[in-house]
Nucleic acid binder design. Structure first.
Length: 867
RNA sequence: GCGAAAGUGGCGGAAUUGGUAGACGCCCUGGACUUAGGAUCCAGUGCCUUCGGGUGUGGGGGUUCGAGUCCCCCCUUUCGCACCA
């Protein structure tokens, strides 16, 4: 013992300790997962990162949380799969390559190599043998195979849809590349343009995706609600207006058939066929439509537009009254929802109300709320609530909900229309006009039409030699890529140049992790079905709708292909909040780094121009705002354990986390306190076995109770992901131990005391291990354990130790706290009440009053109500 | 615009089921100690106070013996909105 004691570091040295244990985990492949039918499996998944170059605090938070869960489940005896990989296709690589005149792949793989080292320095318990990058030709190949399967199934098709078009760069822009309606590079005003694109038929699964939310009780309610609204299932009436003097009709869909008699005009989208027809012989209409198209494609941009309309001159004929009503082209009507045309009811729809006022159109009230008669001429805003029908022919005096049903019945009976279900959800556009993505394995043949690339020819590889500094999709300019012969008729044909949305890759990466080395197909059913579903998925709340909905859909589509057996891919979901930090800005120099400002005591000034610095709100850490903290620096300075500790302690995972340098110091100091306490007791614990029963001495009893209360609390807190309170509980335990040590000299401590002490110290170490794995392994080893702590089972509470002899009861008079009393745990309600009544403080409060009522909550409080 | 959340001391947060508001940590104040360390240890720390107590969880109202927690209205902030990932 003495030799190793001499060699042991007395001071906490995270750099040395962390390198030691990380090396060991790597060499021994401690966290390699193997399928084992005899053990309960646990699939822990964190959202894989985009390899942008360096890990950021959001990653650190995400992966620290995932690692705690994985390590905790491991200690609970589960066979844990905890993989990691790279979401490696995407625009940033293309942009970086263009800037540096290199290849996106070179940039991407260099980033992966760097970030892998950064992740390893965090001490994460991954099975690195399952690592994959979605741009690996292997992964891309199997994704193309899946694409063709789904295409054959009819789940992938082509149709026209709108894109953001930069007329100067002649390229499609992502919504994030549209800044204030202009292209980010050219500065040109962005236009909406129609393009033929590939789509996935997610709407075929809309009902199942919606109804399936009810079977995901362990998903945050907020995510389920958001997906529910996103899918937006509604039931309503679909019917067609006849158009005066025209053969064609105008189909509309409404969820408010009850307001039918209040229709005073119709509005159609700028892309509506009827709008095009008008534009054909009316230059003003064409101009208006072009104006409408001078906006981006994002729903937000469309909705925020100033509401504008153009009278087509056409008259629609009301199906029940025969009344002729004008048809407007409106810039706020979406072609992608319903039929692209709406019946407008200004009295009962706010948007229609505003439009009607702007265009002097009649407003006809057909629903009267009880007790406050409305009139179209004096209406201040649309009435969207319930009421009684008026001005509605035979439907008058019905309540509007009944009227809805009646009108649908009437339309159905007369063959005018029918009840229809609509969804806000649109089919998933998967085409991207970009180079750095997975090629869509299709060929356009002038004779045969669209022909899939034969599976034997997969994968379609991205050409290495590429000029990214061209207009539009670089692949369009590469004849070596595009010029092929048709697989069916062998005539000259053209290869599809669209690449896939990167959400495709993230829709099945968790399946490929299960069988990373499988070479006979995309998925090895046996292994995939062994590990699936993911038991715990952890990632940013920003993925609440898109990624999580697409992955659910893709999984169901693969299920129907017989490739997986579970209905849902992710059993439990934890969405973590953002990492934020104060922003510092200077009137002359914009966003400043903390090191670029000077502390004047009463505030900061800019280091360059000495103007006062404006301290902004906490904002999401972002490079553009210079408020990022580099995790690598933090880990180098304090070690991974401190970094993890701070991230987990500063806020519960679901909440946003505010970065605070002083808080990091606090985490660092606690780990040092723990380290010192163990160093202090170490020489005395040699040969001492941890207590298994509670000794008689009162102060030891209290100490052991504290130990087991902590075991109990930490276990429950980890189950509900309250890492911050779990840490607080261990802090309390360590504080209790330290206090005991200060009051009780170790040389006087007997065996029972040392046994309780060892149990306390070891419990603190075990409980903290999933959170701070390196320091706890080191301390565990120094306590004389040969077996690694990560193989140690999670501790169990001793029910005997949890029993307290006395409890504190709160005494209230009229609901206000007056005093507290200590009573035996097993006191009867009657004794408790009289103890409370006889208390001197209570007596003085009750003077001159009559007790009306006494409420006794056993184990908690007594409330005496007096007048 | 639509959708989803969140507001508690000087700060981050705790209060698990309607039952002690402020656990734990940071900051700050005072003290001790020194092998000067990224020190450490001890005490104090919501606000007001005539030291009895009063008051307090964004604001206003309500339910209840009792409300941070439940209900209604309002204010503020953040996130998502289909080609960022």
């Amino acid at each position: 013992m003495s030799a190793s004691e001499n060699n042991r570091e007395i001071r906490y040295n995270p750099q040395a300790i962390e390198a030691k244990w990380q090396g060991l985990w790597d060499r021994e492949k401690t966290f390699r997962a193997t399928e084992d039918p005899h053990r309960e499996k646990f699939y822990c998944l964190v959202m894989f990162p985009y390899p942008s170059g360096r890990i950021h605090m959001g990653h650190v938070r995400n992966y620290a949380i995932g690692d705690v869960i994985a390590r905790h489940q491991r200690m609970l005896g589960k066979n844990v799969l905890n993989p990691m990989g790279w979401d490696a296709f995407g625009m940033p690589a293309e942009n970086a390559a263009r800037k540096q005149n290199s290849h996106p792949g070179t940039w991407t793989y260099a980033n992966i190599a760097h970030m892998r080292q950064e992740l390893k320095s965090m001490g994460l318990a991954y099975d690195w043998e399952r690592e994959l990058a979605t741009c690996d030709s292997d992964y891309a190949r199997w994704e193309q195979v899946l694409f063709l399967k789904l295409f054959t199934k009819g789940l992938i098709y082509r149709k026209n849809s709108l894109v953001n078009w930069d007329p100067v760069d002649a390229t499609v822009l992502a919504n994030e590349q549209v800044i204030d309606g202009r292209g980010w590079r050219s500065g040109a005003l962005v236009e909406r343009r129609e393009l033929s694109q590939w789509f996935m038929r997610i709407t075929a699964y809309a009902d199942e995706l919606l109804d399936g939310l009810d079977h995901l009780p362990d998903w945050p309610a907020t995510v389920r609600t958001m997906q529910n609204h996103w899918i937006g299932r509604s039931h309503g009436l679909e019917f067609s207006f006849a158009l005066e003097g025209l053969a064609e009709t105008l189909p509309v869909y409404t969820t408010r058939p009850d307001t039918l008699m209040g229709v005073t005009f119709c509005s159609i989208a700028a892309e509506h066929p009827l709008a095009r027809k008008v534009a054909g012989n009316n230059p003003d209409a064409a101009l208006f439509i072009r104006e409408c198209q001078k906006s981006g494609t994002s729903e937000e941009a469309m909705e925020r537009l100033e509401k504008k309309g153009f009278d087509t001159g056409f008259k629609a004929i009301h199906p029940l009254t025969g009344e002729k009503i004008p048809v407007y082209i409106a810039n706020f009507v979406l072609m992608s929802y319903g039929t692209g045309a709406v019946m407008a009811v200004p009295a009962h729809d706010q948007r229609d109300f505003e439009f009607a006022r702007a265009h002097q159109l009649p407003i006809r009230v057909v629903i009267q709320p009880p007790g406050q008669p409305l009139e179209g001429a004096t209406l201040r805003e649309a009435w969207t609530g319930p009421g009684i029908m008026v001005n509605s022919l035979s439907f008058d005096d019905l309540d509007n909900e009944t009227c809805k049903v009646r009108i649908i019945e009437t339309f159905t009976k007369r063959g005018l229309g029918s009840q229809r279900t609509h969804y806000r959800l649109r089919d998933w556009g998967i085409s991207r006009q970009r180079y750095w993505g997975n090629p869509i394995p299709m060929i356009h043949c002038p004779q045969c039409g669209i022909v899939p690339v034969p599976e034997a020819d997969l994968p379609v590889q991205l050409p290495e030699q590429v000029d990214l500094n061209v207009q539009g999709n670089p692949l369009d300019h590469l004849a070596t890529f595009t010029d092929v012969s048709c697989p069916q008729c062998h005539a000259p044909a053209r290869r599809e140049t669209d690449t896939m949305d990167t959400f495709m890759e993230s829709s099945w990466y968790f399946l490929r992790y299960c069988c990373r080395d499988f070479q006979d197909g995309p998925l090895d059913g046996v292994r995939v079905n062994h590990w699936m579903p993911v038991d715990q998925y952890i990632g940013g709340i920003e993925h609440a709708v898109l990624h999580l909905l697409y992955a659910r859909f893709f999984h169901k589509a693969l299920r129907d292909e017989g490739l997986v057996t579970t209905d849902e891919p992710f059993r439990r979901l934890l969405t973590q909040g953002m990492v934020r930090k104060d922003t510092l800005s200077c009137p002359n120099h914009g966003w400043r780094y903390p090191k670029e400002v000077i502390d004047k005591g009463d505030g900061w000034v800019c280091g360059a121009c000495h103007q006062p610095i404006v301290v902004g709100r906490n904002e999401k850490m972002s490079k553009s705002k210079n408020n990022v903290v580099d995790p690598a620096e933090l880990i180098q300075g304090y070690g991974a354990d401190t970094a993890r500790m701070f991230m987990l302690f500063a806020a519960p995972p679901q909440q946003d986390l505010e970065w605070n340098d002083a808080g990091v110091d606090g985490a660092w100091r606690f780990l040092n306190r723990l380290w010192r306490m163990v160093q202090e007791v170490l020489p005395w614990l040699d040969g001492v076995v941890a207590a298994t029963a509670t000794p008689d001495a009162a102060e030891l009893r209290v100490l052991r109770t504290k130990t087991h209360e902590t075991i109990d609390k930490v276990g429950r807190d980890l189950e509900r992901f309250q890492f911050n309170t779990a840490i607080a509980a261990v802090m309390e335990l360590v504080n209790a131990g330290t206090r005991w040590l200060a009051e009780n000299p170790l040389q006087d401590a007997g065996q029972p005391a040392l046994a309780v002490l060892r149990e306390l110290v070891e419990s603190a170490i075990i409980l903290l291990h999933p959170l701070v794995p390196h320091i706890t392994e080191e301390l565990w080893q120094s306590l004389g354990h040969a077996r690694q702590l990560c193989h140690q089972p999670w501790p169990k509470t001793d029910p005997q130790a949890l029993v307290r002899g006395e409890i504190t009861i709160v005494i209230q008079v009229n609901g206000k706290l007056r005093t507290k009393i200590n009573v035996p745990t097993d006191i009867s309600q009657a004794d408790l009440e009289s103890a409370a009544r006889n208390n001197t403080t209570v007596q003085s409060q009750l003077q001159g009053k009559t007790v009306v009522k006494v409420i006794v909550v056993p184990g908690r409080l007594v409330n005496i109500v007096a007048k």
